[in-house]
Each structure stands twice: as structure tokens, then as C-alpha cells.
Amino acid sequence: MRAPIGNFDNARPAPDCLDELTAPVAQAVRAWHGDVPADQLIYVDTDPEIADTAVFAKHYGQELLDESANCVIVAGKRSGETTLAGCVVLSATRVDVNGAVRKQLGARKASFASMDTATGESGMEYGGITPIGLPGDWPLLVDSRVVDTEWVLIGSGRRRGKLIVPGKALAALPGAVVIEGLGI
């Protein structure tokens, strides 16, 4: 199978490579439903040593600079309560934590979650966090430009490997809220 974007030697439907994914991501792919069929979630094997976006794009295809998205975990705090949320923005932008995220979560303060919290609570590896498989009770904030991208490269839950999915599929994930201007 040829990947719809990038230059990858090994592209396969994600349902055929569940053993390459972390447990929460594999479970989400197994339980996948919606307008986008699960076999349109494409797993590509990648070298974890070249995970930095610029180096990654140089190796796997320059167009990936415009077709990659990052998923980061943020912590919103209000009245002693902390809400964790996933935020997905194109990799050429950064998450508007103090504006769009804080407002959407109704938080007094918002910041990036610590690495230990992000990995421990998501069940995913640092550098591979993906919106697919995040806890269902977390808000998932998705920048509208990600949803409007035909095919988007995202993490697979591990540093090795990525998923290529239709951008619109991310809007249908549990807890997803599409926000214009989430990425700045």
C-alpha cells in the first residue's frame, strides 16, 4: 500500500498493525466507528531517531511540514480542580494555551502538562502522543485547520511509527471540539 502523503516504505491500514500501537490507541482503532472507515487510518513505520519535525520532513517528504499535526496535553486549573485535555494543531503552529485553551476549558490557568502526567495519564510515549486513544472523558480541542487538511500525519502512541488519517476524522473523536484559532 502507498501512503497518501509522504515517502514511506511501509504503509498499512492501522487495524492490521494493532501490535505496533500502544494499548489505548489499539483499543480506539479496534472500536473505531464513524464516517471515516478504520482502514483509512494508515500506519507508517518511521525511525524514532529522526522524530524532530524538520528532520522528519527532510527524510520522509517536505510536504509533511504542512500536513503534520502535533497533539499536546494541557492542564487547565480552576478552584483547585485540574482538567486534562488533548490539543491538536498543525505542526507549523503552536497551541494558544493562554487564550483559546484557557477559555474553552473555563480555566483560570492553563499550561502544558508535565511529561510524566502526559504519558502516565494517556498511556502513550513522549513524542508519540496522538488524539486517537486519549481518555474519552478528556476534552479534545482540534484546530479547524487540522480538520480541513485532507490527510494529516499524527502520532501513533509510540515514538516509532505515525498515523496518517483524514483530518475530518479527528473532529469525530470522543470529546472533540473544533476550534478556529487554537493554533497560532
Rank of each mutant, 00 (worst) to 15 (best):
R2W: 00
A3V: 02
A3S: 13
G6R: 02
N7M: 01
N7F: 01
N7R: 10
F8E: 01
F8Q: 01
A11H: 03
R12H: 10
A14C: 07
P15A: 04
D16Q: 14
C17Q: 05
C17S: 09
L18S: 08
E20T: 03
L21Y: 04
L21C: 09
L21A: 09
L21V: 09
T22E: 07
P24T: 09
P24H: 10
A26Q: 02
Q27M: 08
Q27R: 14
Q27W: 01
A28V: 03
A28P: 06
V29G: 04
A31R: 12
W32D: 14
W32G: 10
H33N: 12
H33D: 10
G34T: 05
P37Y: 11
A38Q: 04
A38P: 05
I42H: 05
I42P: 05
I42Q: 05
V44G: 06
D45Y: 03
P48R: 12
A51Y: 10
D52G: 15
T53L: 15
A54H: 14
V55D: 15
A57G: 10
K58Y: 08
Q62G: 05
E63L: 03
L65H: 09
D66I: 00
C71A: 13
V74E: 04
A75C: 04
G76E: 03
G76I: 02
K77R: 08
K77N: 00
R78L: 01
E81V: 07
T82P: 01
T82D: 01
L84Q: 08
S91F: 12
A92V: 13
T93E: 13
R94N: 15
V95R: 12
V95S: 12
D96S: 12
V97D: 07
G99V: 09
V101W: 09
K103C: 07
K103V: 13
Q104E: 15
L105F: 03
G106K: 05
A107K: 00
A107N: 00
A110T: 10
S111L: 06
M115N: 11
D116F: 02
T117A: 09
T117S: 06
A118R: 02
G123L: 08
M124T: 04
G127E: 12
G127R: 13
L134T: 09
W138C: 15
R145D: 07
V146E: 10
V146Y: 06
V147N: 01
T149S: 03
T149W: 01
T149I: 01
E150W: 01
L153M: 14
L153A: 08
I154Y: 10
I154E: 11
G155I: 05
S156Y: 08
G157A: 09
R159W: 11
R160C: 05
R160V: 03
R160P: 04
L163S: 06
I164C: 08
I164F: 10
P166H: 04
G167H: 05
L170I: 09
A171I: 06
G175H: 13
V178G: 04
V178I: 04
V178K: 03
G181W: 13
G183E: 10
G183C: 13
I184P: 14
